[in-house]
């Protein structure tokens, strides 16, 4: 990562981002550690603050599903889809602007797309063995694992307690 390497990167304009103006003035950068020329007129603190505000706004939006204002409380899938959309938007903002990928040359596709595909396949591979593991279980396992009937039992116990507490003051 020496200055020489960085300068060498500059000296070969044709390999930089498509649509980028070939850096004719790269000798001006000789003393600087500027990389790939992506920060020229792109970054700017204003832009970062804008992204920051957008991220804060999006976090508030996903937090909205938790609040009582959210209208689809009885349909959790709506909230999940919404939150995933918000998360993906946030991730895109961070990757594109904070990680400067928006301004990078085409090598970004070489490194990110195969990794992203691997990531998706990895998760999909887990579905048959792990995701569907409870479709067929042994009787013994079914006996010991928590089921919705157990949750209901717990809820009934809580309700019974609430009733007992309501009755208590009346008895006095």
């Amino acid at each position: 990562m020496s200055d020489h390497d960085i300068h060498a990167a500059h000296a070969h304009g044709p390999i930089t981002r498509v649509g980028d103006i070939p850096a004719h003035d790269d000798h001006d950068h000789a003393g600087h550690a500027h990389e790939s020329g992506h920060d020229q007129g792109h970054g700017g603190i204003g832009k970062y603050l804008l992204v920051f505000l957008a991220l804060c706004g999006l976090t508030t939006m996903s937090f909205l599903t938790y609040s009582s204002v959210w209208p689809w409380r009885d349909q959790p899938h709506v909230g999940w889809a919404f939150m995933m959309a918000v998360s993906c938007t946030k991730a895109m903002l961070v990757v594109l602007f904070f990680m400067h990928v928006f301004w990078e040359a085409n090598w970004k596709y070489v490194l990110t797309i195969p990794a992203a595909m691997m990531a998706i396949f990895l998760a999909l591979m887990l579905v048959p063995d792990v995701g569907m593991r409870n479709r067929m279980v042994s009787q013994e396992r079914a006996l010991h694992m928590a089921r919705t009937s157990d949750v209901r039992l717990m809820e009934q116990a809580a309700e019974a307690k609430a009733l007992a507490e309501l009755a208590e003051p009346a008895a006095h």
Partner: peptide, 10 residues
Amino acid sequence: QPGLPLSRGK
């Protein structure tokens, strides 16, 4: 000729 137009560390 650089392989990729970015520094080694990056």
